[in-house]
Simulated scan of single mutants.
Amino acid sequence: MKQEPGKAEAEIAKIGGAQVLRTVLTYRGTGPPVISKEGFGHNPNGPQPLPSWLSEEDLAYYASKFDKSGFTGPLNYYRNMNQNWELTAAWTGAKVKVPVKFITGEVDMVYTTPMINEHINGGGFKKDVPNLEEVVVQAGVGHFNNQEAAEEISNHIYDFITKF
C-alpha cells in the first residue's frame, strides 16, 4: 500500500485511536486487512465486541498511548517495505539454522494471506527453516495469539525450551 505521509494519520485522528485499535484487534477476516473506502476504523464485519482477553480499560490504555505518540511510527514500517527488502538483501536465501517451533493463529491475518499458508504448510517454510520442529496452528486464534491464548502460548514455549 503506497500512502503519502500524513494522510492516514489525519484519517485516524478523525475517528480516534480507540476505534482503529478496536478494528485491528478484533479483525477476523482471512488475508491481510483491507482498508475500505470508509477508512481505517471501518470493520466490514460490523462492530465487533471486544474479545475476553481485551477489556475496555485495556483498549482505552493502548489508545491513550497511540493518541499521545500517534500512528506514524507503525505506519512508516509499511511505507518503508521496499527499503526493508533492499537493506536485508544480503540475507536472501539464508537459512534459519536453530531449532524452531512456529506458532500462529488459524485466523491470523498474516497466516491466512494467500501464499503464506501454502508456504508454511507446503514445505517451503521447512526449506527456509531446516530445523523447524513443529508448526502449531491455534484454532480460532488471530494475529495477537500471545494475548488471545496466553496460557497455551506459554505452555508451548515452556515445552519447547525445556528440551534444551
Results as ranks from 00 to 15, higher is better:
15 I>C: 03
22 R>H: 07
144 F>N: 08
23 T>V: 15
137 V>D: 01
164 F>H: 08
83 Q>Y: 08
77 Y>M: 05
5 P>K: 11
49 P>S: 01
24 V>R: 02
157 I>S: 05
29 G>W: 05
33 P>W: 06
19 Q>I: 10
40 F>S: 03
86 E>L: 08
39 G>C: 03
126 K>T: 13
84 N>I: 13
105 G>L: 04
7 K>Q: 13
149 A>M: 04
147 Q>D: 14
53 W>F: 13
67 D>Q: 09
20 V>N: 02
15 I>A: 04
158 Y>T: 07
10 A>M: 04
86 E>M: 03
145 N>A: 09
126 K>W: 03
113 T>F: 13
151 E>P: 00
149 A>V: 00
123 G>W: 03
92 T>Q: 15
21 L>D: 06
33 P>R: 11
22 R>F: 03
10 A>D: 12
118 E>N: 13
130 P>N: 04
161 I>W: 02
37 K>P: 09
125 F>R: 07
76 N>M: 13
153 I>T: 08
137 V>I: 15
47 P>T: 03
83 Q>A: 01
90 A>K: 09
61 Y>C: 07
121 N>T: 15
60 A>H: 03
118 E>K: 10
60 A>R: 10
39 G>D: 04
2 K>H: 12
124 G>L: 11
64 S>Y: 06
87 L>G: 14
76 N>L: 06
151 E>W: 00
86 E>I: 06
14 K>Y: 06
47 P>H: 11
51 P>N: 09
158 Y>K: 11
162 T>K: 14
85 W>E: 13
80 N>C: 12
157 I>A: 12
135 V>M: 06
147 Q>K: 13
159 D>Y: 00
6 G>E: 02
35 I>H: 06
140 G>L: 02
104 T>I: 12
79 R>D: 03
86 E>H: 07
62 Y>H: 10
153 I>L: 09
107 V>D: 01
124 G>Y: 10
89 A>I: 03
40 F>V: 01
102 F>I: 01
34 V>Q: 14
93 G>K: 07
69 S>T: 15
47 P>C: 00
19 Q>N: 15
30 T>S: 15
35 I>S: 07
162 T>W: 02
39 G>L: 06
35 I>G: 04
14 K>D: 12
85 W>T: 05
107 V>H: 02
82 N>D: 14
162 T>A: 02
59 L>A: 09
79 R>T: 00
3 Q>L: 15
95 K>G: 11
85 W>D: 10
14 K>L: 12
35 I>V: 15
102 F>P: 08
162 T>C: 03
134 E>R: 10
24 V>W: 08
10 A>Y: 02
14 K>R: 14
36 S>I: 00
132 L>D: 11
124 G>V: 08
149 A>C: 02
21 L>K: 05
83 Q>M: 06
94 A>S: 10
150 A>N: 11
39 G>R: 02
100 V>C: 12
88 T>C: 08
149 A>P: 00
137 V>L: 05
73 G>Y: 11
157 I>C: 10
